[in-house]
């Protein structure tokens, strides 16, 4: 059916010039920044100082929100919807926009148990970690494709 293993010549490979990047964020040591940096590094991106980098990835903070998705018969939350989002944009060394500002969004649902608040708070913590990983994956994919499509 035409499927092939992704190879070096793939459209998803980050072009050589995009591989020297600088990460511009207010919170470079947070879990999110670390996850994103590690994921980009594993895919061949070298993190440089600002004045040596070809491209600057501007990363906004992760924003997390939680709301009730459905209510049980006591009008208490039966399910939560969790949303994590982050804005990002890429500029070139001269400061000009190399990629339109975009927002990565991840939405998850979970079952709530109003009688086990602490256990469910720990579950939210686990899901937050996964959402962070999926956010940075999404950002990597979008920048990779954008760069490759140029």
């Amino acid at each position: 059916c035409g499927f092939q293993l992704r190879g070096v010549a793939s459209a998803t490979a980050m072009p050589e010039s995009w591989r020297q990047m600088y990460l511009d964020t207010s919170d470079p040591n947070s879990e999110f920044s670390r996850d994103l940096k590690a994921r980009f590094s594993a895919n061949g991106i070298e993190w440089m100082e600002r004045d040596e980098a070809n491209y600057i990835l501007q990363l906004g903070p992760e924003r997390f929100s939680q709301r009730n998705l459905s209510l049980n018969s006591e009008a208490r939350a039966a399910e939560f919807e969790l949303t994590m989002q982050a804005r990002f944009t890429v500029r070139d060394a001269s400061g000009a926009m190399a990629m339109e500002p975009a927002e990565a969004v991840i939405v998850k649902q979970m079952e709530n148990d109003p009688r086990n608040v602490v256990g469910k708070a720990e579950e939210i913590r686990i899901i937050q970690g996964e959402m962070r990983a999926e956010l940075s994956q999404q950002i990597l994919r979008r920048i990779g494709f954008h760069a490759a499509a140029l």
Binding site: K108, Q109, M110, E111, D113, N116, V118, G119, K120, E122, E123, R125, I126, I127, E130
Partner: peptide
Amino acid sequence: AELTFSYNQLFRETRFSG
């Protein structure tokens, strides 16, 4: 707590939070 079953659960190392 027992984690809500979802696609993500397939690749988790545990079925419990905490």
